[in-house]
Amino acid sequence: GTFLFILAVGLTLNMPVIWILVFRVKRWNRSTIFLCNLVLADITWILTLPFLIYYHLNQLHWIFGDALCKITRTIYHVCYYCSIYFVTCLSVDRYLAIVHPLKSLWLLNKQQSLLISLSIWAVTSLASVPVPFVASTQICPDNKTICSLYVFSSSTYITLPFSMCCTVVGCLLPFIAICYCYCSSVRTLQKTGLHHFQKRDKLTKLMYSVLIIFALLYFPYHLSRNTCIFLRALWPNGNRSIENADTVFFVEVAVCSLNTCINPLFCFLAGGDFRDQVCKIASSYCHTKTWRSQQQRTSVYPV
């Protein structure tokens, strides 16, 4: 049910965003590049959802083969961490623009932003290499084929250090960087006077949005994932606590996937040019609707 919701709402929100970024925003800057990559990461994962939706509707019986199972699980892992990194890049972009406005022009230009984006995709993909080796199809006693997550693998000597490393590098460090950027930015804006109040207010909203997303989506997901693997390492034969941890993790996977529906919010909060284009489109739509309404009234009640 959650995946169906994400497929419908995620595509509905992200496709117009990518259209506006590509076709309506004329002057691309570094934030536009990061926003575009954030949306691309979300759309890429959303496009794998039909396979997972059918898999769950088919009572966890995977019919698409081992290769597609590995690809689907790997795409989720890559896009999930790309999403976190691009949100972090947007935070760094805001930090540089506010705290180091002059230095930011040469510290992080468009070419460097593009290079950073490509590096994030490359490094995240390289770091996800273990996923297809431990996530694969398995045949159950009832002849049902499941597409297992690496979290449920018995190879905990691989999955535990891998998951812990991803937690530190892919979640904790970006969160610390984001907190530093936003705190420094707000402190700088407080010193500049009342004429930056509106800018500070927008930045504060963006900061709180990121903190809430980390608190509700990213941290619980990593905690439940590490717990599942840790319990398997302690009790390889399995027990009741492992089953409970697995259930919690399944819930967290569904909840955490909602970030693909929430990330378009960053486009509106962080992208000034994007926000301007949305306002122009909305204004144009309202103007057209008002004009048509007046035309209809004129035709019904001619002067």
Rank of each mutant, 00 (worst) to 15 (best):
F3Q: 00
L4S: 12
L7P: 03
A8M: 14
W19H: 12
V25D: 10
R27S: 13
W28R: 10
I33D: 08
F34Q: 05
C36I: 03
N37I: 01
N37K: 01
N37W: 03
H56L: 14
Q59Y: 07
Q59T: 12
H61I: 01
L68D: 09
I75C: 09
Y76F: 13
H77T: 06
Y81M: 02
V87E: 14
S91K: 05
V92D: 02
L107I: 10
L114M: 14
I116H: 03
I116P: 07
S117W: 02
L118E: 11
W121I: 08
V129H: 00
P130L: 13
V131Q: 01
C140W: 13
P141C: 06
I146F: 07
S153I: 02
S155P: 00
M164L: 15
C166P: 00
P174A: 09
P174D: 00
C183H: 14
L194Q: 12
D201L: 10
D201Y: 02
F214E: 03
A215R: 06
L223C: 10
R225L: 15
T227V: 10
R240P: 00
S241C: 07
A245D: 06
T247R: 13
A254Y: 07
C261S: 07
P264R: 01
A270M: 06
F274T: 05
V278D: 06
C286G: 00
T298S: 15
